[in-house]
């Protein structure tokens, strides 16, 4: 028994809504992504591989992924702490803080980029302190890391927060009456419940950081092999009118972030199966 493509429905507007949805999706998203893949296919595997397999491109790709991973790991820990503090504790300014966590979503990346640079440059407020201590933040990988932490900050906090709100106190009380210490309860009861949501936030932060451009390029210094991120290399290739080269890096980035999302999805399914839906 084959299912019909569309089930009968008394509600009107099928043609119109499907038409608008599929037309806009095709023109704005699918056609352009198809053009990228087509450019890759047209230039062939050899040309693509030659464009990717240079020290400079590998350097940029590895730098983007390595720093994004570190930033996402920092945000994983910090985001869980933020969610916990915002839900469980009461202190003055909590609601303001709650609203402010979304700032990196609302603040344009170019604004964040120049602000972070002004702050961490050797003559900036934080940069001067670092300079006195003998190290440099802006125009080094540390600067890139700070920018990536900024853009990824809200993801884990926002995915974990609703889960913390829904934890039933009885579970914690049961654990305590059975003699578990608070640390034991957190380690074995609470953190496992937060894991699926935290991993989702981690994956979202990672995907966002890997592709981030605006907030990074001002603070990065953009020195090939040292502080040149993959999206910047795409822009450079485009400015040289090297479309096959730009497309090769673009496809590589698409593939790697797609694979990372799949991997994290698998981890999530696994942890859900072990712990159950929360």
């Amino acid at each position: 028994m084959k299912q019909p493509l569309v089930h009968q429905s008394p509600i009107p507007g099928l043609g119109l809504s499907a038409g608008i949805t599929l037309t806009m999706l095709s023109i704005i998203v699918l056609l352009p992504i198809g053009a990228l893949l087509l450019q890759g296919a047209a230039s062939g595997v050899d040309v693509m591989w030659a464009a990717i397999n240079t020290k400079r491109t590998w350097g940029a790709l590895l730098l983007s992924f390595r720093l994004s991973l570190i930033a996402a790991l920092f945000n994983l820990v910090f985001g869980v702490a933020v969610a916990w503090v915002l839900v469980r504790y009461r202190f003055p300014g909590r609601k303001l803080l709650d609203a402010a966590v979304d700032l990196p979503f609302a603040l344009p990346t170019a604004v964040a980029g120049i602000a972070l640079t002004a702050l961490y440059a050797p003559n900036g407020a934080f940069g001067a302190i670092a300079k006195d201590l003998g190290f440099k933040i802006a125009y080094t990988q540390w600067g890139i890391l700070i920018a990536l932490i900024f853009v990824g900050l809200p993801f884990v906090a926002r995915t974990v927060q609703p889960v913390v709100e829904e934890i039933e106190r009885e579970v914690e009380e049961a654990s305590a009456t059975l003699g578990a210490s608070r640390a034991h309860t957190i380690r074995h009861i609470i953190l496992p419940m937060l894991t699926p949501a935290a991993l989702t936030g981690f994956a979202l932060a990672l995907a966002r950081s890997v592709g981030e451009y605006g907030s990074v390029i001002f603070i990065a210094g953009n020195i090939p092999m040292k502080t040149e991120i993959a999206p910047l290399l795409i822009v450079i290739r485009l400015e040289e009118f090297d479309y096959p080269g730009a497309a090769a890096i673009g496809i590589a980035m698409l593939l790697i972030s797609f694979m990372m999302l799949l991997a994290i999805n698998a981890v999530q399914v696994f942890s859900r199966r072990r712990i159950g839906y929360v």
Partner: peptide, 9 residues
């Protein structure tokens, strides 16, 4: 999940 730069590209 697409980088803005890749979107522009």
């Amino acid at each position: 999940s697409v980088s803005p730069v890749v979107a522009g590209l």
